[in-house]
Write a protein that binds this DNA or RNA. Structure first.
Length: 421
RNA sequence: GGAGAGGUGUCUGAGUGGUUGAAAGAGCCAGUCUCGAAAACUGGAAUAGUCGCAAGGCUAUCGAGGGUUCGAAUCCCUCCCUCUCCGCCA
């Protein structure tokens, strides 16, 4: 959510941002409602001031044993007018709130303007695409032959997109989680084990509600939302809190299962592990001083990239264009890993700066030494990393002609086996 | 799930309808004193909205949201959370 005052004072910038992000422009309606709101506040508060003044007088009169009946009588009309104004104000503010939630975050100037994925810029590529003198298979063929991922039983037990990982695939996942968390800890992230269902306020805080409500599974009976990413509980960890400036940046790494309904996305892009309803992910979250947030974005990206390099997975970095980057971000990098069996790039991480978009919704501040006042922190997050596609790429890139899979060196201390066969 | 108690500012804690944005103490910041520190003393210090060039004014905020009243931290209702006991249970 953007600051109303910011919109009022920077209308042009906001409008340009909306166009760049290809969102609906409600700014004029917002400004009109804001005017209406302030008029109502002006009148209402004037009357309330009068009410308070008279009420004090009534108290004094009663104490002095005087009859206050006529004064009280007079206040009745003021009272009903106040009620009327408060009601109008409530309606106006609800409408205003609704429209404010449709205003996207403004892209950073360094973000390329564009509307489709073709307009994203590949800014970095690492590693060689594996070559082989035998046909490279997609991971689902390999795992099916090895019997290590059971999609059919997953469908029976839960539904499509909820596979079982069996034996060494399960161990491999556990190894990756530990590897990712250890790496994060080494680079200053505090490990956090978070709830995997959250309440409505939390879902709203990180922006899943209202604009992405359909992505989540909901336990309606208890009004709990299953998290689509650890970003939700981990960022909300500090909701309505104020940091000391000297404590920034604050960094967390959280491993959780993630749940996504992915409604309406079927077809051949979603085979195997490419897209699931439940998957594991380690998420990196930072709360930082506004002056450092773009440097922190780069280091966040570096933290995610390092994992791919250590695993020896070829990848590329995309700088997302304005139209493809999403509602809440000001700047976003996607990391895509090369899956040799499918001959496809798979997104495994997305690193974003939200500036104050989330912290304003969540009221996460720091006490500024400069102004002595609480100011909003900038929040960032990035996957470090999402498991299934990493597993897919590892299997496809490290397959042998016999259909076995070689485990990367860095993982072997965690898996305690070197080959999946 | 059942029964009870409770949620007040950074903390402890007073306050059951009328200058209570809120006593008191601690802590914090500044100053006086001191060679310096401690102690003592003096002063300062919330957040948001709104009006104003500003100084500053006004409004709201005592878990959240409603209600009663001329007036609510104080009374009523709903919800949330914490604690104690019981039940159930990984």
């Amino acid at each position: 959510m953007l600051d109303l005052k910011f919109i009022r004072e920077n209308t042009d910038i906001v409008k340009k941002g909306i166009i760049a992000k290809r969102c609906e422009d409600n700014i004029d309606a917002i400004l009109a409602l804001d005017n209406q709101r302030r008029t109502l506040i002006g009148e209402g508060e004037g009357l309330k001031a009068k009410r308070n003044e008279v009420s004090a007088k009534v108290g004094a009169m009663k104490k002095a044993g005087q009859d206050a009946a006529t004064v009280i009588e007079e206040m009745n009309s003021v009272k009903s007018r106040i009620q009327q104004i408060d009601e109008e104000l409530k309606t106006v503010e609800e409408k205003l709130e609704e429209l404010l939630l449709t205003v996207p975050n403004i892209p950073h100037p360094s973000v390329p303007v564009g509307s489709t994925p073709e307009d994203n810029k590949t800014i970095f590529e690492w590693g060689e695409h594996p070559k082989a003198d035998f046909p490279l298979k997609p991971h689902w063929e390999i795992t099916s032959k090895l019997g290590i991922i059971d999609f059919d039983r997953g469908s029976k037990v839960s539904g499509a997109g909820f596979p079982f990982y069996v034996g060494k695939a399960a161990t491999l996942q556990r190894a990756l989680i530990n590897f990712f968390l250890d790496q994060a800890a080494e680079h200053g992230y505090v490990e956090l084990q978070a709830p995997i269902v959250v309440n409505k306020d939390s879902a709203r805080g990180t922006g899943q509600i209202p604009d992405k409500e359909d992505m989540m599974y909901v336990a309606t009976r208890d009004e709990l939302y299953m998290i689509p990413t650890a970003e939700v509980p981990v960022t909300n960890f500090h909701r309505k809190e104020t940091f000391e400036e000297k404590d920034l940046p604050v960094k967390y790494a959280g491993y959780t299962p993630c749940f996504r309904r992915e409604a309406g996305s079927y077809g051949k892009d979603v085979r195997g592990l490419n897209r699931l309803h439940q998957f594991d992910k380690v998420e990196l979250v930072k709360f930082v001083h506004p002056s450092t947030s773009y440097d922190e974005l780069e280091s966040l990206r570096a933290d995610a990239e390092r994992l791919l390099q250590l695993l020896g997975l070829p990848y590329r970095v995309l700088l997302m264009c304005t139209g493809d980057m999403g509602f809440t971000q000001t700047k976003k990098y996607d990391l895509e890993v090369w899956a040799a069996g499918q001959q496809k790039w798979l997104e495994v991480s997305s690193c974003s700066n939200f500036e104050t978009f989330q912290s304003r919704r969540m009221q996460i501040k720091y006490k500024s030494r400069e102004t002595g006042k609480p100011e909003f922190v900038h929040t960032l997050n990035g996957s470090g990393l999402a498991l299934p596609r990493i597993v897919a790429a590892l299997i496809e890139n490290n397959q042998t002609p016999e259909g076995k899979v070689i485990v990367p060196k860095v993982l072997q201390q965690y898996t305690r086996f070197a080959v999946i066969e």
